[in-house]
Structure formats: C-alpha cells, structure tokens
Amino acid sequence: MCASYGLDPRFTDAEQLAAADAAMLEGLRHWAEQNAGETLRPTGRNLRNLNPVVMPGDDAAVLEQAWWGFLVNGAPARFPSINTRSERLQEKPGSLRGRAIVPSTGWFEMQKPQRAWHEFGLGRGVLFGMAAVTQRGKDPDGEWRTCYSIVMRPAPPQVAHIHDRVPLLLPASFQGDWLTADGSRELIDEALIAAASLDERIAAVERADDKGMDEMLF
C-alpha cells in the first residue's frame, strides 16, 4: 500500500493534472516549498496532517487542505485508512460518494525482505493525480476536516516485484469524471481502465538516501 508520497515544488510537467490552473499550480508549489519538498507523514497522532487535494467546486475544481487518513471521534482511525483497495470500492461503491484527486510527484514503498525504499512516479518533474475517496471528520482540535484515503490497485508487471500495489493514477482525460460523476461500480471500473493507459510510464528508483523513512512513518 502507499506508505508515503511527496510533492516536489520543482515540478515542470503538469499536463497530467487536468484541473490545475495557474493559481492552483502556484498553490501546490507554495505548499511544497513550505514543507521543504519532503515526503508526507501519514498517520502520526501528534501531527497537523493537512495536505493539498483537488476537490469538486461549484463551477470548477478547487484546492483544499485535507487530512490523510480518516478521523473518528477527534483522532486518527484505529483501523488502516490512509489507503483503500480498488476491489473494496467495487464491492461497496457507496464509499465513492466523496472523491478527490491527490497531487503528487512520487510515492514511496519499501521492498521486502530487502527493506529498500523505492520512489515511484511517471518521470522526473511530472506532476500527476492519484484517486482518493473522502469523508468528513473532526481533528484533535475539534475542527471539521475533509479526510482522504488514496485508492490502491494491483501493480503493473514492471514494478510488481518491488511492491504489489500502486495508487490509482488518473489520466488527465478522466479526472473530471472522477470528481463529478455519480459514485457507482461503473465509475471505479472505468477509472481502472483509464489508469491502465499510464501503466507503461510507471517506474521506480531505489532511494539510498531514505534510510530514515522507517522512523518517519507511524
């Protein structure tokens, strides 16, 4: 599953994030710069875990700060919630009522048993969108937040030996449907078909400088 992901402010190719206008791209760069372009910490109980996601708006998509993982009774859920399997959404499409797109330039997984960290992406400097489902929850300060869970699917063959799951990447042509179409079994089926068009571009690079990632993740 997606252990962590990053947003590098130096991205140069934003064609795979269809909803992003100039203001949204600047907002993403500003957020990434404020966080030193570092990977995100997903479930630390004492962290202010707010990250930019693209949400449907009244007239156009909007950027919102959201919490990675679900909040229950003012605290991170006790069950795993930073990721949701695509198979579960096919079985229970009711979870598709709320949806978002998570901007990223790469995600990180550990290859076992080697315990080697790898970064996955679509190429250097490429900004892309990962499918997510959302729900509302109260943070530890009692404020209502949008919470999101990244949708994961089986990995394509060229990276499956490193990790068996990858995020559901949305090509630009399908991102509008993901945000605005009715939530249904057909939607997740169509999203999986659309995502396959990006399979050949998914590549992984071993990160020798990420030996401290184990301590970062809670």
Score class of each variant (00 low, 15 high):
Q158K: 12
H163I: 04
A172Y: 11
P156D: 11
H161T: 11
A172S: 15
L168R: 00
H163N: 09
R153Y: 09
D199M: 11
D189Q: 15
L187P: 11
I162E: 04
R153L: 10
H161F: 11
A172I: 12
R153D: 10
D164A: 12
P157H: 11
P171C: 00
P167F: 00
R153I: 15
I188T: 04
A196T: 11
L179N: 04
T180I: 05
L169W: 02
L198H: 12
T180S: 09
I193D: 05
R153P: 10
H163L: 07
Q158D: 11
P167K: 01
D177K: 00
Q175P: 11
S173N: 08
L187R: 01
P154G: 13
D164T: 13
V166R: 01
V166L: 07
L169E: 00
T180F: 04
T180L: 07
H161S: 13
F174S: 00
L179M: 06
L169S: 01
P167E: 04
A172C: 08
Q175N: 05
W178N: 01
V159C: 08
I150G: 06
R153A: 10
A191R: 01
Q158R: 12
I150H: 05
L169Y: 02
L168K: 00
P154D: 15
S184F: 07
S184H: 11
A191V: 04
I162F: 05
Q158S: 10
I150V: 15
V151M: 05
A181S: 14
E186T: 09
D177H: 07
S184L: 12
D199H: 15
R185Y: 15
P156R: 13
D182L: 10
L192A: 02
G176V: 02
P157C: 09
I193Y: 03
I162G: 03
L169C: 05
D177A: 07
G183C: 07
D164N: 14
Q158M: 09
A194Q: 08
P157I: 09
A181C: 11
A194G: 05
L198F: 12
A195T: 06
R185F: 15
L187N: 02
L198K: 08
D199P: 11
E186A: 14
S184G: 12
L170I: 14
I193Q: 07
S184P: 13
L168A: 02
Q175Y: 02
D182I: 12
R185K: 15
A194H: 03
L198R: 08
P156S: 13
A194N: 06
P157L: 10
R165H: 14
D164G: 07
D164Y: 08
I188Y: 03
V166P: 01
M152C: 13
L170T: 04
A155I: 05
T180R: 10
H163M: 08
A160Y: 07
P154R: 12
L170D: 00
A196P: 03
L187I: 06
P156N: 14
